[in-house]
């Protein structure tokens, strides 16, 4: 499989994306913005459609739209403070509506759009690989350098603001970073499933990790496992990579939840048994005391 150049590119792109997308996912889940990645992928699709209609570079337009969408969501989040999910709904609907209208203007687009919607192994061109590499490097620098203020921001915004974190600026920078990562991940997993690569590994990691750094590391390991096994399975079974990767990640998450439940149950039983023995011993002692 790896003798083909397109597969080498797909695996390299997958490796890069699964280094950065799960870290973003940890922050998005903790900030209760899991749906943001899904929304931005829809907005990005509108950009791709506009790029095609205007005979520009669709990937570049998609990229710019995702960043713009991120900034708009952040701005609306500040307007709708009480109902933070409203901006997500507004932007997702607007992005999808715009994409549909633009696609209808150019009917030839419909066919090529399936690779954007579901992802494609062959969709990763050398130029896209460069974009993905650049986004990964920028993302890693962003999350590494700003890990302390981002931790404070994620824990509690007002406390962070009082202790000197520039909350508004950092939130907008985070929104831009989210847009960039979503747009970079789109060629592999597709518009409809981009959030699976961002949210599912972090959802798994947050159940098991004891600390913040271990959560990020576990999310990356989970993302990479899903990505590599998904790409390989997609190649051999000729299925869309987005769906295959997402299904594997869902299975990993479900297995994790199952194993955790079994372990908890076993622990409960052990504790229960120990308590029963203690109770019985106490009872015997009590009876002996009464008889004496």
């Amino acid at each position: 499989m790896l003798q083909y150049e397109f597969m080498q590119r797909a695996f390299l792109a997958g490796w890069l994306i699964s280094l950065i997308a799960p870290i973003l996912g940890v922050y998005l889940v903790l900030r209760r913005q899991s749906l943001m990645s899904d929304t931005l992928s829809h907005v990005s699709m509108a950009g791709v459609a506009l790029g095609s209609v205007l005979h520009g570079n669709p990937a570049l337009y998609g990229f710019l739209f995702a960043i713009l969408g991120g900034i708009t969501i952040e701005q609306l989040r500040r307007t709708y403070k009480t109902y933070s999910e409203v901006p997500v709904a507004i932007i997702m609907t607007s992005g999808l509506a715009l994409a549909m209208v633009l696609m209808s203007l150019k009917t030839s687009l419909n066919k090529s759009f399936s690779s954007y919607l579901f992802g494609s192994i062959v969709a990763v061109s050398p130029s896209q690989l460069i974009i993905i590499a650049a986004v990964t490097v920028i993302g890693l620098i962003f999350f590494l350098v700003l890990r302390r203020p981002l931790y404070s921001l994620t824990f509690e915004e007002e406390t962070a603001a009082v202790s000197g974190v520039r909350v508004k600026l950092l939130s907008f920078a985070f929104a831009v970073m989210t847009g960039m990562i979503v747009a970079a991940a789109m060629p592999i997993v597709g518009v409809l499933l981009v959030s699976s690569l961002i949210v599912l590994p972090s959802a798994f990691a947050l159940r098991f990790a004891g600390g913040f750094i271990s959560a990020c590391v576990l999310a990356i390991v989970t993302g990479m496992t899903g990505m590599f096994s998904g790409l390989a399975a997609s190649y051999y079974t000729n299925t869309p990579p987005g769906g295959t990767i997402a299904l594997i990640l869902v299975m990993i998450l479900l297995c994790g939840i199952g194993v955790q439940r079994v372990l908890r149950l076993a622990k409960k039983r052990r504790t229960g048994k120990a308590q029963t023995i203690l109770h019985q011993q106490k009872h015997i002692q009590l009876r002996e005391g009464v008889f004496k």
Binding site: V26, L30, F155, T159, S163, G164, A209, G211, F212
Partner: peptide
């Protein structure tokens, strides 16, 4: 200065229970 003030809000104890941090962290 900003750094010389610390604030503990009312809902401090009701933060996300799944926040992946140890007490010391």
């Amino acid at each position: 200065t900003k750094g010389s003030v610390a604030y503990v809000p009312q809902q401090a104890s009701s933060f996300n229970p799944g926040f992946p941090s140890k007490v010391i962290e």
